[in-house]
């Protein structure tokens, strides 16, 4: 049975990969007086709408996450359905 499904993919930089944007934001917060924000890490998310059979959709979402949406050298992803 074909259904439409939505999913959100959260992409994060792996631990240890420098995040210059995060570092810059943290420094800005500190300059604004928010000294208690010790670290900021940035990331991104994708909202997907996919049609197909339920099991196919899950497999395909994982597939596109590894192939295109993330670079496995520097990023990890988490899918929320």
């Amino acid at each position: 049975m074909t259904t439409n499904k939505t999913a959100t993919v959260y992409v994060r930089l792996k631990d240890g990969v420098l995040d210059p944007q995060g570092v810059t934001i943290q420094k800005a917060l500190s300059q604004m007086g928010y000294d208690d924000f010790l670290s900021v890490r940035t990331g991104k998310f994708f909202e997907l709408e996919v049609s197909g059979s339920a099991s196919d959709i899950d497999r395909k979402i994982d597939e596109v996450c590894s192939k295109l949406l993330t670079n496995p050298v520097i990023e990890t992803f988490e899918v929320k359905k």
């Binding site: 990969v17 210059p20 944007q21 810059t24 520097i74």
Partner: peptide
């Protein structure tokens, strides 16, 4: 080629 090219540290 191995590795990745990420944002310049200066942004």
């Amino acid at each position: 080629l191995p590795g990745a090219l990420i944002r310049n540290r200066s942004l």
